[in-house]
Amino acid sequence: MTTIYKDGEFVEENWTRADAETRAAIKGDALVPQNLFLEAAEDYLNRDGETAVLVEAGDDVELIRSYLDRLSYVAVDFPSFADGRGFSAARVLREQIGYQGDIRAAGKYILDQVPLARRCGVSSFEISKPEVLKALKAGEWPEVTKYLQPVGAVDEIPVGTRPWARRSFRDIAVAAE
Rank of each mutant, 00 (worst) to 15 (best):
E140Y: 02
K129I: 09
Q113H: 13
D171A: 05
K27H: 10
C120G: 00
Y44K: 07
G107L: 11
A173Y: 09
D48P: 00
E62T: 09
V151K: 14
G28P: 00
F169Y: 14
T51M: 01
P33I: 12
F10R: 15
K146V: 14
S123H: 05
R119I: 06
P115M: 06
W141T: 10
T51K: 08
D7V: 05
E42D: 15
K146N: 12
R47V: 06
V11C: 03
E95G: 01
N14R: 15
S128L: 11
A135G: 00
E21M: 12
N35Y: 04
L63M: 07
D29H: 01
E50K: 12
R104T: 03
L45T: 02
Y147N: 13
T145H: 14
L36Q: 12
R47L: 06
E56A: 03
V151P: 01
E156N: 04
Q96V: 15
D83C: 04
Y44A: 07
Y67C: 11
K129P: 00
R94E: 07
L45H: 03
G160K: 05
V122Y: 01
E50A: 11
K137A: 13
R17H: 08
E13C: 01
E12D: 04
I127C: 02
V53E: 08
A105D: 05
Y5F: 15
L45N: 07
L31T: 06
A105E: 09
S66P: 02
T22I: 13
E39W: 07
K27S: 10
L71M: 14
L116K: 09
Q113P: 00
E50C: 06
G58N: 04
R85I: 03
A18W: 15
D7F: 06
A30Y: 08
T22P: 00
S123R: 15
A176I: 12
W141K: 11
L68R: 13
E131P: 00
Y73D: 12
W164M: 10
K134F: 05
W15P: 00
Y109K: 15
P158K: 09
W15N: 04
S66E: 09
L54D: 05
D77T: 03
